[in-house]
Structures are given as structure tokens and as C-alpha cells.
Design a protein around this nucleic acid. Structure first.
Lengths: 183, 183
DNA sequence: CCTTGTCATGCAATTAGTTGCATAGTAGAT
DNA sequence: ATCTACTATGCAACTAATTGCATGACAAGG
């Protein structure tokens, strides 16, 4: 019970087709909640049955028809109700952390490579967030109510990426230090 | 294909029953990979079929028998092989972030409460990590190879919790500031 | 002309994970 | 006496999510 709410938020911000949503879940919202297009289409169907969203087929020229979904009043009510319920504790699921813990039983050189790859992925996302912040929120000290949520989520992403980079640096420092000693 | 590896790491560190593993997945390893006992028992059965682990029934007095699992040679090989494969990009799934983004469509007071709750959960885990670090790694500048993985994962947890607290503080600052203005 | 990429929607099969239930003995508290 | 909590293992039913496949039109590059 959560992808529904991510979709509701996205549709509350702006109506969209399943395809549009899939792209949003590849980018902005997708940095905090991933979903494949198959999953989105399936859940949209269920949500329409529940009356949370309504669809309208829109013909396009030079492109296939699309089904544009909009949030309904019932959908908005559900969304508000959801925000009023406490968020259940979320549990990380970090394969990377498990792999770091597996250091004594594995291939240190390969793991170091992995850390480098992860570090550069963090850097990429950090750059993306910074660009996104500069573009969409040029005046963070003067945000209106509609913008505050998006801004704060971006800030969270930024802080998380910075922490991730710091962790990678610490790992690399440890691992390359011991490597140097071994020689 | 990942809970298997978390179990393999845990068993490589020390043999254990399903029950023991479930408790580990409630604490140490569980901070980075959660698993219920039902799932653990199911996966252990499959892993035994694959020859990655072997079990032995141990009778106890005053307590039910237990099935102690140990990692096999094949299991160690699989574990090493896994560390040599690159880790697929992991995607967060933060219901909390979605809820923050839902701020303009929801109940701000309830969300503020949620942020407070999350902040104190972060503080609790931070305290746990700090205690754990002091207890198990009193000399972080003199770690041997077997300890390095556990230490680095703890460090990652610490950094993540600190970043989480900083985020909560930023959110609360924003939200309580706007609340003050409204009056 | 042919390939690759984008737009657009979806089904089917499988795997992963959650929820609920069942059993059974011991220990400690009320 | 009774209730709660801990140790210990597991099945069954369900829901969520992934993987693989299918279709079809248009646009751009080689």
C-alpha cells in the first residue's frame, strides 16, 4: 500500500498517462520510489476500479493514443487520509552494505571497484539534484506552499547522496590503506 | 537473489539456527536487510537443497531442539563469487519522502508529528550504532581483516542516521517557521 | 532500406515477501 | 492458577514486484 500513494501524489501535481508516470518514476519521484511501467499500468487499473483516479483517452497525431489519468475527489481524500496516518517504520535493504560486511569472505579488489562505481553514481545523482534545485527552486528562501514538498525531498536526496559519498570515501581510505601496507 | 547472500554472510561469521538468524535480522544485519522468520526458514530450506548450507539438529535441555545451519564449501564459493560480481544499482523506497512531497495535499500537523517520530527513531539507531561501535570495535585504528567489514557497515549506518537527522531538522525548521508566520 | 530509439499499452508467468495461523515446552510474574 | 514472554519451527494463503514477451506506429541516422 504505497505505490498507490506515490502515484496519487504524482497525479495530484499533474495529470498524466501511464507512460508519463513511468518516466517520472525513472526520474524525479523515482529517486525515492522506483516502479516499472508494468507495475504502474497494473496499479492504475486497480486504482481506477477503486475510484481514486479517472482516465480519458486522448488522441494524438503522429503518436499512439494515450490514456490520461487524473486524480478524483475520492483520490484526494485518500491521499489526505494517508498523510494523516503515521508512516510505518521503513527498513533499508542495502545489498551494498551486505557486500561490505562480506569483505573478509570475498574478493577485496572487486569490492573496491564496486565502491568506486557506487561513489560515482552518488556523484551523478548529487549533480542531478543540484541542477534540479537550481532550475526549479532558484529562491529557496521564498518558496510557496505548493513548492515546499518538492524542495524538501530534493534536500533529503542531497543530504543522502553526500552521506553516501562520505561513506564510500571512508571505505576506500580503509581498503587502499591496508593494501598499501601489504606491499 | 540477495537474502541468500545476507544469510551466507551471517553464517560465515558464525553458524546459527533459523531462530538465531531471525534475531540477527532484527538487530545487527537487520539494520541493512530485514527479513521475517518465515522468510528465513523458507530460504534456508532452499539453500540447503542447493548445498550452500548444511544443518544439524542439536538437542537442548529445557528448550526445544534446534537446527543449526553452517555454511558449506559450496556456500563459501558462492559468497566469494557474489562479491566479485558488481552490485546492481539499488533503489530506495522511501514512503517518508513520498509523504513529504505530499505536503501540499495533506495534513501538515500530522506530517510534522511523523517527522518528529522519524527523527527520534534516527536518534535511537544512532545511539545503538555508537554503543555497538564502542563495544565491538574499541580500537578502530587497529582492526584486523575479519573486523573491517562489520566496522565499515557500522560507519555507514552512523553516517546515514546523521544525515537522516539533519534532514528531519531541516524539514522541521521549514514547517514550524511557516506555521509561526501564519499566526 | 534498415536499424535504433521514442511513444504507448498491456498480459502472463514467476519469484519475493507479508500476514495469519499452528504447535509446544519452559520460565517468570501476578 | 493464569497470563505473558521466550525459545523454536514451519505451512498456507495472499499480495507485491520482477522478468519476459507482445504489439504497433513514427522519426532520425546511417
Amino acid at each position: 500500500m504505497a505505490i498507490e500513494h506515490a502515484i496519487l501524489v504524482s497525479l495530484a501535481e499533474r495529470s498524466a498517462s501511464g507512460y508519463d508516470l513511468a518516466r517520472r518514476f525513472d526520474a524525479s519521484i523515482g529517486h525515492f520510489w522506483k516502479a516499472s511501467h508494468q507495475q504502474i499500468y497494473k496499479v492504475l487499473g486497480r486504482m481506477e476500479g477503486d475510484g481514486w483516479v479517472a482516465s480519458e483517452v486522448v488522441a494524438q497525431d503522429g503518436r499512439p493514443d494515450k490514456k490520461v489519468y487524473a486524480i478524483t475527489l475520492a483520490g484526494r481524500e485518500e491521499l489526505a487520509l494517508w498523510t494523516s496516518r503515521p508512516t510505518p517504520a521503513e527498513h533499508l535493504r542495502s545489498e551494498f552494505a551486505v557486500k561490505i560486511r562480506a569483505l573478509p569472505f570475498g574478493d577485496p579488489a572487486a569490492i573496491v571497484q564496486d565502491v568506486h562505481a557506487r561513489r560515482s553514481a552518488h556523484l551523478d545523482r548529487l549533480a542531478y539534484y543540484e541542477q534540479s534545485a537550481a532550475k526549479h527552486y532558484p529562491r529557496p528562501d521564498q518558496l510557496d506552499d505548493a513548492e515546499i514538498g518538492g524542495w524538501l525531498v530534493l534536500r533529503g536526496g542531497l543530504l543522502a547522496e553526500q552521506a553516501g559519498i562520505a561513506w564510500c570515501d571512508e571505505i576506500l581510505q580503509r581498503l587502499t590503506a591496508s593494501e598499501a601496507t601489504e606491499r
